[in-house]
């Protein structure tokens, strides 16, 4: 009797297992498809957006050819357009913002994870995340009504008198004390991206195993040595991801920049002079773009923003790869 049931039970369990295997394989396949679709969705939207912008800008590209890239002309009356001024403004403001935001965010994240007393870490961390949620137009209005007068009244004249007299670099800091301009835009951008970069940095610094840090401390390291030799190498790729997030936001920011950049289509060496950025130009002029070539040029600008962002991020990635290779060879 017992042998009998066993004889029946074994094949039935084999059948069950087979059925289960088949079902698992099906579920696995389905799962793979769903996840792949989610991944493809990103690629599809990206190429779709880029291609539709290329298509919308085809008239501008075919009319102006490559000179669209380096012409400083932006004349809606005579239908002559060139993208150099907005491209330059976009790159310069993003560079200024990164020069300020990366070290400051690094400092904030370090302070919160290594130095600050425990009771302080949670509230300050929450405050930073709150800052990241403020809409950009608020930064723009704050920039225009609060920060611009300070720049115009105190900082620009001081820069003119003290830094403006230096050779070479001085040319960057000579100009009318308007308060608006590329430097102001860069600083406002820096304030906007600091919460992004620092909250990512803080998050990943917390993932460093305490064992590692404590070992280093036990060997007599200073806090700085622990951070530089243990925390940073351990979290490098995530930190870079955070910096890229901020850089991407800097390159594409629209409203805040429009408020404080001055929106003038002129190329000038001085950071105190007004300039223009790609996103600001599109936001300003799209509604009243009354000729086809005008609208097409603006869409072409949008496509160039894609390209510029892509090149900047690739370049940064390559540079960092090289750095880490050198590190490995050491």
């Amino acid at each position: 009797m017992a042998a009998d049931t066993a004889a029946i039970a074994i094949p039935s369990s084999v059948v069950d297992a087979k059925r289960r295997n088949a079902r698992d394989a099906r579920a696995d396949g389905l799962f793979r498809w769903i996840v792949a679709a989610a991944g493809m969705f990103v690629l599809l939207t990206l190429t779709g957006a880029a291609l539709s912008m290329l298509w919308g800008g085809r008239e501008a590209f075919s009319t102006f050819g490559f000179s669209f890239l380096w012409s400083t002309e932006w004349d809606a009356v005579n239908h002559k357009f060139g993208a150099l001024v907005p491209i330059y403004g976009t790159l310069v403001t993003a560079l200024i913002s990164m020069l300020i935001a990366v070290p400051v965010s690094f400092g904030i994240a370090l302070f919160l994870t290594e130095v600050a007393p425990n009771w302080m870490r949670q509230p300050v961390g929450a405050a930073i995340e709150l800052l990241a949620g403020i809409p950009s137009i608020i930064y723009g209005m704050w920039g225009l009504f609060v920060f611009v007068p300070i720049m115009g009244e105190y900082i620009n004249p001081w820069l003119n008198d003290h830094v403006g007299t230096w050779p070479v670099i001085g040319a960057l800091f000579r100009g009318p004390p308007l308060g608006i301009g590329m430097l102001t835009a860069g600083i406002v951008l820096a304030i906007m991206v600091i919460p992004f970069i620092s909250s990512v940095m803080r998050e990943v610094f917390l993932t460093v195993p305490t064992r590692l840090k404590e070992s280093a401390y036990a060997l007599g390291s200073t806090t700085w040595e622990v951070v530089w030799d243990i925390v940073l190498p351990y979290t490098r790729s995530a930190v870079i991801g955070g910096v890229f997030l901020g850089l991407g936001r800097s390159l594409g920011e629209t409203m805040a920049v429009t408020f404080v950049l001055g929106n003038a289509h002129r190329l000038s060496a001085s950071l105190l002079e007004p300039g223009n950025s790609i996103a600001a130009t599109i936001a300003n002029e799209f509604t009243e773009a009354d000729s086809d070539i005008y609208r097409s040029s603006l869409i072409a600008l949008g496509f160039l923003l894609f390209i510029v962002t892509f090149i900047v991020l690739t370049f940064a990635k390559l540079m960092l790869n090289r750095l880490s290779k050198q590190e490995g060879a050491k």
């Binding site: 002309e73 932006w74 004349d75 809606a76 009356v77 005579n78 225009l144 009504f145 308007l178 608006i180 429009t258 408020f259 001055g262 929106n263 003038a264 289509h265 007004p274 300003n284 002029e285 009243e288 009354d290």
Partner: peptide, 22 residues
């Protein structure tokens, strides 16, 4: 020349009447 936006020889640009006023 003339148009809803032109190539300004000098100056800074404010967005909207309120931007120029500010």
């Amino acid at each position: 020349g003339e148009g809803t936006s032109v190539q300004w020889p000098v100056g800074v640009g404010g967005k909207g009447n309120e931007g120029v006023a500010a």
